[in-house]
Amino acid sequence: MRPLTQCKALLAAVLASAAVVSTSAPAQDRAGERAAMIETIKSHARSAPSAVEGQGIDPAVLATMAKVPRHLFVPEEQRGAAYGDRPLPIGHGQTISQPFIVALMTDLINAGPGDAVLEIGTGSGYQAAVLSPHAAKVYSIEIIPELGQRAAARLAELRYGNVEVKVGDGYYGWPEHAPFDGIVVTAAASHIPPPLVEQLAKGGRMVVPVGAPFATQFLMLVEKRQDGSITTRQLLPVGFVPLRGGGRAR
């Protein structure tokens, strides 16, 4: 499993650089700040064993994040803070996730070059932009028209050509393009919509960040096995052992 992932990662990295090189000049801006952001993500990842699989976050994901101009995805008044490792408000009660969480989610989705990925909750469009070089196609649905339209325009302008955004109800997924190898659900929900489970390909992965705005509690990973059965895993973004001394109860 892992060597294949590595290969996919390598290929994705190549594609990622190709995709981003082809975008416009702003990508060059603030590269130093992005590099520092990547270092923060790496250091967080070293202390978050539960949510990080294998040897740490896929270098291809980090390479992509080092290129996506995050400052162009946040409102003007937030641009100064765009590369801090923190969530930022983007209006309408929504946030752009903390870069570390974006990295974890993209890593967990583990998309390959031929994969179709569905995102519920486009928000600023940043997550879709980070997924873009790692998948064949990213479909993203946003419930709030203003956010969806703005994100679609921004992604088009930055030439993320394989991202398609529509405004609508994410509950039913996007059946025309199903099944999906990966699904990211960033919109809060009391339960996982059954159509999304149905549209997840066998062997596919769904990631749901759970928590309040500005405070991700854990990431939920939903996996559909080859036999169609569903399991979930709750992954903490932090290495925290609730028992003092770290011992297990017997």
């Binding site: 509690q217 973004p237 290495g239």
Partner: peptide
Amino acid sequence: WRALPELLTLRTQGGAAM
């Protein structure tokens, strides 16, 4: 109280939510 220093250190990684 004794969990506070650890959770504050981890506040940017989900510690704040705890």
